[in-house]
């Protein structure tokens, strides 16, 4: 996993609540057996019309937001299906962090495992960031997982909390399977106990 420590990047405002994983990456792109290359399909139906032509008004199609690496969105981002393709698509597109008032559970895990930092900020902060990014295209934020803060150069500063296990994994780019295998004796002991259960 790519480690996450600090990042500064252009902010794309996606002022919608309940952005579900069906929107992040629609089902027709889930048939592939690869792990990469999903970035071009990100938000497909919002980015493109029925004929596949780009919708110029959608935020990610606007030149001002080209190269955005931080997404700011409404509450309950990532709800719906467990498809990790959603996290893969966001990362492949170039997003490193997402800021929202809340995230869905399975998506949160998928994001963390793929080095995508999810930052939960209060509604008011998110609204402020959305409107700054809407008013000033090219608006940048600085995110630090070391100090657990989000800031801009106009005086915005907010700190966030994050689960310590996730933080350690993200900072170190740690692979969970590797971590687990260190506890092989615990697993074996548990299995031995299971074997005595009698059914």
């Amino acid at each position: 996993m790519r480690p996450f420590r600090e990042h500064t990047g252009i902010v794309a405002p996606l002022d919608r609540t309940n952005v579900d994983t069906d929107q992040i990456i629609p089902k027709q792109f889930l048939k592939r057996i690869e792990r990469t290359g999903y970035g071009e399909f990100l938000f497909w139906d919002w980015r493109r019309d029925g004929d596949g032509k780009a919708r110029p008004e959608f935020v990610l199609n606007r030149d001002e937001y080209a190269g955005a690496s931080i997404l700011v969105a409404g509450r309950n981002f990532g709800c719906g299906s467990s498809r990790e393709h959603a996290a893969w698509a966001l990362v492949d597109y170039g997003f490193r962090a997402i800021i929202a008032p809340s995230f869905a559970d399975i998506f949160s895990t998928n994001a963390a495992i793929n080095g995508l930092l999810l930052i939960t900020l209060p509604d008011g902060d998110v609204q402020r960031l959305l409107s700054r990014a809407q008013k000033h295209p090219g608006y940048k934020l600085h995110v630090s997982l070391v100090t657990k803060t989000v800031s801009d150069d106009q005086g915005f500063l907010s700190s966030f909390s994050i689960d310590e296990f996730r933080r350690t994994c993200l900072l170190g780019g740690l692979d969970e399977i590797g971590l687990t295998l260190k506890h092989e004796t615990d697993i074996a002991a548990y299995e031995a106990k299971l074997g005595q259960r009698g059914w």
């Binding site: 792990r35 467990s82 498809r83 990790e84 996290a87 399975i106 895990t109 998928n110 495992i113 793929n114 969970e176 399977i177 687990t180 295998l181 697993i187 299995e191």
Partner: peptide, 15 residues
């Protein structure tokens, strides 16, 4: 429900 990385995790470790 879990994502694909966790699917792999369960396959490899049953945990």
């Amino acid at each position: 429900g879990i994502g694909t990385s966790e699917v792999e995790h369960v396959m490899a470790t049953q945990c």
